[in-house]
Write a protein that binds this DNA or RNA. Sequence first.
DNA 1: CGAACGACCTGTTCGC
DNA 2: TGCGAACAGGTCGTTC
Length: 259
Amino acid sequence: MPELPEIETLSRQLRPMILDEQICGFEILDSLLGNIGRLEGKKITSVMRQGKSLVMELDTSAALVLHLRMTGRLQWHASHQALPPHTRFIMAFPRGRLLCLDPRRFATLILRDAVRCSKAVIDPSRNYPVSALWEIAGVKKLPVKSFLMDQRIIAGVGNIYACEILHDALINPWRQTCSLSKQEWRRIATVMRDVLNRAIACRGTSVSDWRDLFGNKGEYQHALKVYRREGSPCPRCCGRIQRLRLSGRGTYFCPACQV
DNA sequence: CGAACGACCTGTTCGC
DNA sequence: TGCGAACAGGTCGTTC
């Protein structure tokens, strides 16, 4: 489930372990990942998050880009221990080993050459002009939830946080983007930034199998208001939380107060 | 062009 | 208990 807060958590935890360190071993255990060549001897010069991707720049002006998709996880092993099931690759560093686990095998690791200047993609966890949001949204008719999850526009919001953000902002997920007022967009932007930053402070949401780099659960699952709470009372208005499908994704909302 | 849907994989949960 | 169906954090390609 790694969405923005989970990848941000990994990025922050990983930095002290591997920044400015040399890769001293690299092994791919899952052929689905493809072959990205030898990494031994290369140094990690930066660790950052871009949307839901973890980007590790190398001293060879290339960058490793890891996307965990649905069930990908990273684990840090400071001392030698047995490989857990579903280990996809291992990267060894002087002070420990970084493992990528992924039961569903959707995760991807690529070696991107040179620095790529990304387009004007909004980082929803930071401050940005809200006009950027509603100017794009104003001409679109798609449901606002799909808009929030469009990674080409806003990078990092997935299904869990989209549900939570729209509930907090009192917006129905099916509202067409062009029908929202500037004031509503301001509310969405503020709520989105706050929800994501609170989730980062909680080291993510462990509704299922998400764990941080050191195997610990996050804490934001305790703060969820609608996600996976179908049939429970809405914490705001005591309406009944409903689950419906919106373009294939389970969508949780309160029909009473999200209008 | 945009929206809907299947595919990619495996594991877990739910209903009968 | 057993078994099949539905469902799961995400994205991509195809089709309508």
